[in-house]
Design a protein around this nucleic acid. Structure first.
Lengths: 117, 117
DNA sequence: ACTCTGCTTAGATGTATGTCAAATTAGAAC
DNA sequence: GTTCTAATTTGACATACATCTAAGCAGAGT
């Protein structure tokens, strides 16, 4: 056989797949989203008037302690999905729209090739 | 205070947030995606000619053993993101386009309210 | 200054997950 | 049937993660 031995099973690449670095970055954001509680929190924040909610709005409706909710909010915040702002006694959270939009754009044209759609 | 005591901090809901059941389902799919190796595998499969790739196409390029790749493929398969088909000696994987499309549709109109965009 | 409330941080614990080596199944070719 | 290769399954292990209790921090009001 020659130098380049194309195995019978293998098909050639038609596009360049996602890089290792980008995959790690995207996975980090997705990992922040991949939890039922955090999905509900994100949805709850977005469902509130003005697109923002205080923590007391978010703790009710969950069978979880305050610290656990706080932990999940921190994960979402560090992933860049939400922002926190203190106003007097209460802290308000709001969604970062750009973060979700970039995720949406990732699946439609990003991963699936035109041929497979 | 009266029967319904709207706390000063809280804002009303303008939309119904995601349900507990749906959140659990979506989180399961996202959890399958939230791994750098699995993201790269999915992208690699989609990048191959015809939108499918055999396992030997997928094991090269990773510093991982065969069983580990096999494990990740199983996770993706059980999440409904890819399909496997045996043809002779080799097993070919292909993306399930509908699964990714439903994810894309989840972020754009699903979570972020119109007011916050 | 003291206290009360809202929220976060720190530490501990049980469970889930990514990885590998070894064993197993499945088909092809002889 | 035997052997060889392709791919998965099993079992073990180390790390990561979700959750709780207890403690700490920050503003508001007295």
């Amino acid at each position: 056989m020659g130098v380049q031995d194309p195995r019978a099973c293998c098909t050639p690449l038609t596009r360049t797949p996602i890089g290792e670095g980008e995959a790690t970055e995207v996975a980090q954001v997705l990992k922040a989203l991949a939890d039922p509680v955090r999905l509900r929190l994100l949805s709850l924040i977005g469902a509130h008037d003005g697109g923002e909610a205080c923590v007391c709005d978010l703790t009710v409706g969950f069978d979880l302690t305050g610290p656990t909710i706080s932990h999940h909010l921190k994960v979402l915040r560090e992933a860049g999905l939400i922002q926190a702002e203190r106003r007097g006694t209460w802290i308000y959270y709001r969604i970062v729209p750009a973060a979700l939009e970039s995720l949406a754009g990732l699946f439609a044209p990003g991963l699936v090739p035109a041929g497979a759609r």
